[in-house]
């Protein structure tokens, strides 16, 4: 091919071609990230995300942020450091939540008839926005990992509180006291969830009473910092553009 030849006939066509590629790239990136992130999240934190009676003050608060900061860190490593787009975490969470909401409506409710107020997904959006804003303002991976990672863990419970609070109201049922969420779990029988599994709040941490959620959130934030660092470098690796020469294989 000749270097002097042009691929387009005018500047206007070049602009149109560029925009068309933008949309195709965005769609592919969005759906591929959605698929990878969703399968990762549902199989590492899914049970806490599926059911309201699993959304407790200790393990849900601890597990969900730790396993969900992974893809946002990796995608930020691409969109910010290569293209200066401060939307990596938000795009990931938008994708994940879209996939989850479609599923909870069409399948959890539409196929197997669990009510949506029993199987709604966790809200991860406040942490994602903060993560992106910190990266945009600081332009520092270390700052984003330490401040953003901690914020990711700390914001999770407050970000979900308006949704989960009505279901954490105590009720008395057959002489036992538990939450409305627990009551939902008793009424909507899940064949794969025996009773011993549903007792999610276990251990001595419960003796801390009202302090359980903040303690769990701090621990979650601390681990999220470490996971952010790790996944930032995973993201860098996945950004590589190198080729393996045919004769090396």
């Amino acid at each position: 091919m000749s270097a002097s030849q042009s691929a387009v006939r005018s500047r206007a066509e070049a602009v149109a071609v560029s925009r068309a590629f933008d949309w195709m790239i965005l769609f592919t990136l969005f759906t591929a990230v959605l698929g990878g992130y969703h399968i990762h999240y549902m199989l590492t934190g899914g049970d806490w995300d599926f059911w309201s009676d699993w959304k407790d003050r200790r393990l849900w608060v601890t597990v969900a942020p730790i396993v969900s900061i992974t893809f946002p860190a990796a995608v930020q490593a691409m969109l910010w450091y290569r293209y200066r787009l401060p939307i990596g975490a938000t795009v990931c969470i938008l994708a994940l939540l879209l996939g989850e909401w479609i599923n909870r409506y069409l399948n959890f409710w539409g196929w197997t008839y669990f009510p949506v107020n029993f199987c709604f997904p966790s809200n991860l959006m406040p942490g994602a926005i903060v993560l992106d804003v910190i990266l945009m303002l600081g332009s520092s991976m270390t700052l984003t990992a330490v401040v953003g990672g901690l914020a990711w863990g700390l914001l999770f419970y407050p970000g979900n509180w308006p949704i989960i609070a009505p279901l954490h109201v105590p009720v008395e049922y057959n002489g036992m006291m538990f939450t409305l969420a627990d009551l939902q779990g008793y009424h909507y029988v899940r064949t794969g969830t025996p009773e011993y599994i549903r007792m999610v709040e276990k251990g001595t941490l419960r003796t801390f009473g009202k302090d359980v959620a903040p303690v769990s959130a701090f621990f979650s934030g601390f681990v999220s910092v470490i996971i952010y660092f790790l996944w930032h470098f995973f993201g860098k690796w996945f950004n590589k553009t190198n080729f393996i020469q045919d004769d090396e294989s």
Binding site: M24, F27, T28, L29, F30, T31, A32, L34, G35, G36, H38, I39, M42, G46, F50, G99, E100, I102, N103, N107, F108, W111, T112, F114, C119, R190, T191, G192, T193
Partner: peptide
């Protein structure tokens, strides 16, 4: 590639999480 991303969505997201609720039922 658009088709690949679209196919990944249906496989890894839609039908995989759907499997979870079927097993719970």
């Amino acid at each position: 590639l658009v088709m690949y991303g679209w196919a990944i969505y249906w496989g890894a997201s839609y039908f995989t999480e759907q499997d979870g609720t079927w097993h719970q039922t």
